[in-house]
Structure formats: C-alpha cells, structure tokens
C-alpha cells in the first residue's frame, strides 16, 4: 500500500504528516510506504491513499486515490482515526 502525504513544498507539513503516520503504522503493525510530496510534483502520480491538510481539498479534486483530509496536523488522534479508516477501506475493496 502506498500513502502519499501532501503539502505545498513537500518537506514541511507533508514531512510532519509522514512522521506521524509512520509512527501509527508501526504501532498498528501495518506495512505501507509513506511518501511526502509537494502538490506540483504529485500531479500525475498515483497512490492508494492521499493525506493532506484540510484546506488543500480544492487542489485534490482530480486525484484518483482515496483522499484523507486532516484539520489539526499535530493531533495524533485525528490522524490515526482517519488514516486507519482509509486503510481499512482500501483493504476491504
């Protein structure tokens, strides 16, 4: 499974998201590749799940992957709940 974390630059917010998600996956013993991208470079790429800040939703309308939007990017509870649900959705399809 491939999870892309997105932000405008590809190494600030998206990297922070990757770090949290890597930690969650490790605790839950789920294998997935988490890759931070900047919005521009991600266009044309594919992933199973895209995790991005909430207000980036308008830039993600044409994305094929399941999109997970996070409001509070330092809230491990919100990130965990939303990302694990997306992973379950992916595994059940």
């Amino acid at each position: 499974m491939r999870i892309a974390t997105l932000c405008g630059m590809g190494f600030g917010t998206s990297m922070m998201l990757k770090l949290f998600i890597d930690e969650i996956l490790k605790v839950e013993n789920i294998k997935a590749e988490v890759i931070p991208w900047d919005l521009g470079s991600f266009k044309g790429q594919q992933a199973d799940i895209v995790v991005a800040p909430m207000d980036m939703a308008m830039h993600l309308k044409n994305v094929q992957a399941q999109v997970v939007l996070i409001n509070n990017l330092i809230d491990k509870g919100e990130i965990k709940e939303k990302v694990l649900k997306a992973i379950q959705d992916q595994l059940s399809t």
């Binding site: 932000c7 405008g8 630059m9 600030g12 917010t13 922070m16 919005l39 991005a52 800040p53 909430m54 207000d55 980036m56 509070n72 990017l73 330092i74 809230d75």
Partner: peptide, 22 residues
C-alpha cells in the same frame, strides 16, 4: 507568497502556523 498562492494550510493546528518556503 506561499501562503497567498497555496493557501493557509501552513496553519497546521488551532492557533499554530508553520511558515516556510523553499
């Protein structure tokens, strides 16, 4: 410019902004 062009996503949590450019 990043804030204006890409949006206020840098406000990563309630009351907290992480500003940066390239």
């Amino acid at each position: 410019r990043v804030l204006q062009e890409i949006g206020p996503y840098a406000v990563i949590a309630p009351g907290i902004v992480l500003l940066h450019a390239r």
